[in-house]
Write a protein that binds this DNA or RNA. Structure first.
Length: 291
DNA sequence: CACTTGACCTGTCCGC
DNA sequence: TGCGGACAGGTCAAGT
């Protein structure tokens, strides 16, 4: 999915649009998305008020009244889309296209939440890997989904030293796989791991423990730079991702290597962007500047 | 333990 | 035009 910048963008949207709203009705069209217990899921949510929005890695956390938490994971193709009571999304452009070519709700709407003011929140998911889950606050802390997530790269505690420490711990792991491991650093996925390694001029197959101090510094800098830029641009709409208002993120216009196989490297060093599977996923890099 | 493969789903795109 | 295969932002579990 949606990786950290996309999820962060959605959370910011939720803070703007959803706070204080009371859930009036919940419709579940894809029971698997909520763990099968449609009645329990629905009953827990109805009547609750939205009081907070945050994220942990790629997990979206909505805090509700009554100590209830609604967790959402969008996996590869999930969308969270807000519509006001007149059915309006954002101003202008490609609404049909980004929302799977049909008015909401449609065949990919897994969950539809209606608020007391008539506005709605849709959870759409083409590939149906995403999920929603409710639990009480006490429970969430010990929740496996949350407990096993590594450090937030946007936190102050994430320092160069901390990065070095993690690299030492997983010294034989390929650096691309290292970046994607959610239990080490939270929120990096297939787009940003490739983009970060290009920015840091590090080849994706290098063992994590082999990076020289200067390279660790570059990697640390690249993580911060790429994430900041991606968040600023509202994330990447590579296929189905949209912001809460249905509009697309703009980071793909600035991507240097992801999905750029065969293109000349943006550094102008004469390298041609390569693609190869690493850890089962396509990695993209420039063989000239990434050492 | 690390690493790979398949599963979960549906769609798009490319080559023949 | 049709068909088959590869591929797609993510995690899990099982096998080697």
């Amino acid at each position: 999915m949606p990786e950290l910048p996309e999820v962060e963008t959605l959370v910011r949207g939720a803070k703007q649009k959803l706070m204080g709203k009371t859930i009036k009705d919940v419709k579940v069209a894809w029971p698997k998305a909520v763990g099968g217990n449609v009645a329990g899921f629905t009953k827990t949510l109805i009547g609750k008020k939205i009081q907070g929005a945050s994220r942990r890695g790629k997990l979206i956390i909505l805090e509700l009244s009554g100590d209830v938490t609604l967790l959402t994971h969008l996996k590869l193709t999930g969308q969270l889309v807000y519509e006001d009571k007149s059915g309006k999304l954002y101003e202008g452009g490609h609404r049909e296209k980004v929302l799977y070519g049909a008015p909401l709700p449609h065949k990919f709407t897994a969950v539809e939440i209606t608020f007391s003011d008539g506005s709605k929140l849709y959870f759409n998911d083409l590939r149906k890997f995403g999920w929603m889950k409710v639990s009480d606050k006490q429970h969430v802390i010990s929740n496996k989904e949350l407990a096993e997530i590594g450090i937030e790269p946007t936190d102050k505690e994430f320092t160069k030293e901390k990065l070095q420490e993690l690299l030492n711990k997983k010294s034989k792991t390929k650096i691309k796989d290292f970046l994607m491991d959610q239990s080490l650093i939270a929120g990096l996925g297939n787009i940003y791991s490739s983009e970060i390694l290009w920015e840091a001029k590090i080849a994706p197959k290098r063992p994590a423990g082999d990076l020289k101090p200067a390279e660790v510094g570059e990697l640390y800098r690249a993580i911060g730079k790429v994430l900041e830029m991606a968040i600023k641009l509202g994330g990447s709409s590579e296929s189905t991702y949209v912001r809460l208002d249905g509009s697309k993120g703009n980071f793909m216009d600035y991507a240097k290597v992801y999905q750029k196989e065969g293109n000349p490297c943006a550094r102008g060093d004469g390298g041609k962007i390569k693609r190869e599977k690493i850890g089962g996923r396509s990695a993209f890099w420039c063989p000239v500047c990434q050492k």
